Amino acid sequence: MTAFPAGSPANAPAPAPVRESARLVATRALGWLRGHCELGTLPPGTTAELAHPDSIYKPLGETALAASLVLRDGTPPGEARTARELLDFAWWELRGGDMLYERQLRYMMMTDPLELYTHFVRAGYRHERLDALLEHLAGLVTVYAVEQVPNRRLAIANASRLMGIDRGIDWERLVGATWLGNTPEPWVIDWMTAYSVTHTVFHITDWGARPGDLPPHIEDHLQLWLPVWLDVWREVEEWDLFAELLIVGACLREPYLDPDAWDALASAQHGDGLLPRDGKEVGEDPAQRFRDHHHPTVVAAVAGTLALSRAAGR
């Protein structure tokens, strides 16, 4: 395992193998998402109630996240058109934001409309009525009193920050409530806690845009233990979590970009761009492949995008 030496600048160029692997992973993943996006259309008659939001609604938001980061960071080079097409597709499916507005209006304490909307806002899409509604809700006590697990509170805080409606959010308190914020014994980490760790970092740093916001004690903890966790989940071929941990590496003040880890991810990725969730066999049915492996492929696109961005000093 190679990491940047202590004290190296945050914009130190990544080794060439990382850049090439990251570019390959991101470009192939974006191509797969674009080529299969029609499998992620909302069923006719879908309303804001969304009886099963994780089936299509959530994947639309994840696609928008990946595409918005491509446009934000300008990586991989030449993929801006693909990213914009993916955003246009997702925005169309959400009826130009009307579905997000209707869902937020009907379920005022739900946070997913805000969180999904910010991916579009990052890329220049706006919905005036939703803007006004979110501004109004930000002034209500109940919105901040909604019961959420700690890393989810960070997700809401980051979305509010992006919208400019954060009302004096105490980031130190929110971070201190997380598992990672307490830098506990790293060897007791389990699968679900590892996902919480990744999302804690994503939201503190706004997906790598604010690496300086990561508290120093967390930075030190991750510089020491992230390589170990990567080894663990590479060995058991949990590629979705492995890729999320690579995103964490790209979000650090001193980005952790290990050529061997990136080569492993590139090798696990299928030639068409799909990243399998784990080491199990991937079936041939296109719809099932989309349902099972859309999320890890989004994660692959984000991981490659952020690694390239940090390697370029952005």
Rank of each mutant, 00 (worst) to 15 (best):
V232I: 15
W225Q: 09
Y195W: 14
G283V: 02
V282G: 04
P184W: 12
D285I: 13
E244M: 14
P286A: 06
W179K: 04
V232C: 13
E185F: 11
E172A: 11
T178P: 00
V282F: 03
G283Q: 01
A303L: 01
A243F: 06
L174I: 02
Q288V: 14
I189L: 15
S309I: 08
T305Q: 02
A177Q: 12
P286T: 07
H221V: 03
T205M: 09
A177E: 15
Q223Y: 14
W233R: 15
W262H: 06
R310T: 04
W187C: 00
A194R: 09
A250M: 08
A261W: 12
T200Y: 10
L308E: 01
G181L: 13
P227S: 02
W187H: 12
D213Q: 14
F202N: 09
A303G: 03
G283N: 00
A301W: 09
W233P: 06
H295R: 05
P276I: 00
H293V: 04
A177G: 04
W229M: 09
L222G: 10
A209C: 06
W262I: 03
Y195H: 15
G283K: 00
P276C: 01
W187R: 11
E219T: 12
D278I: 03
A194V: 07
L308P: 05
V201T: 04
V197H: 09
L245G: 07
A303T: 02
G249D: 12
L224H: 14
D260R: 15
A266C: 12
L274T: 07
R310C: 00
I189F: 05
S267V: 15
P211D: 03
